[in-house]
Amino acid sequence: MKGRPEFPDVRTLFTAVLIITSLAIAINDYLWLLILLAITLASLLIAGIHLTRLLRRLRRYRWLFLLIALAQSISNGSGTVFLEFQGYVLLSSGGLLGALAALLRITVILAAVGLLSLKDYQQMVTGLAQMGVPYEFAFMVLLAVRFIPVLMEEFRNSLAAIELRGIELKAIPLGQRLKVYSYLLMPTTAGALIRSRRIAIAMEARAFRAYPRRTWLQWPSLTGWDWFIIALSLGFGAGVLYFKIRGVIA
């Protein structure tokens, strides 16, 4: 079934996100990573996505960022040494640039993934199916992604349930505390399995996979703008990779 084209199409977004995230992983040059970040942020703004949402997400990972930056800074002792301890370089210009590149890389990836928030769950499944991904597989992957926050919520509830039994987690020794935490895996896993079974039954009751072919409420076609963005993304990605292989970009 043909549907009204709606720019940007999911395939366009997938292509752009795939190119941006791949380049963010491949490139080490912080200046090029900055350019990539600028392009991504501009795309988010043009798409009407508030950057505050991105900032909230970045804030959630601030400790991970700090840890990665520290690890980068310590493992890369090149350039001018600023801080040294018993022969080990703790802070250097090369380490700082490495840490900056690592932070930029993660920010670019998280920002690029934010572009996908333009589409809802059903549009994503349709888009993946249009790209040739088997429908069942696309559905399963997106269902799993959708359940991550639910599982996290369940984990938090189980933790609260343990504390509500009067167990002061902070007061018990670390070994015992880890053992208590291991208990949390049980309800989370059991809950996920029970929910999966219920969803599978509900889907089969609605004739999921009962026929070899299925109809689609919408099957949108690409607009001229979609083709342009896809071509531009692929061209940009190929160009940067070419210069990367030639050694022009680090």
Binding site: L164, R165, P187
Partner: peptide, 19 residues
């Protein structure tokens, strides 16, 4: 935990408190 020692709480969904 201190509140839990003073008041027992039985969840609406009992599964939510099993571990």
């Amino acid at each position: 935990a201190a509140r839990g020692r003073l008041i027992g709480y039985v969840f609406q969904n009992p599964e939510g408190q099993f571990f």
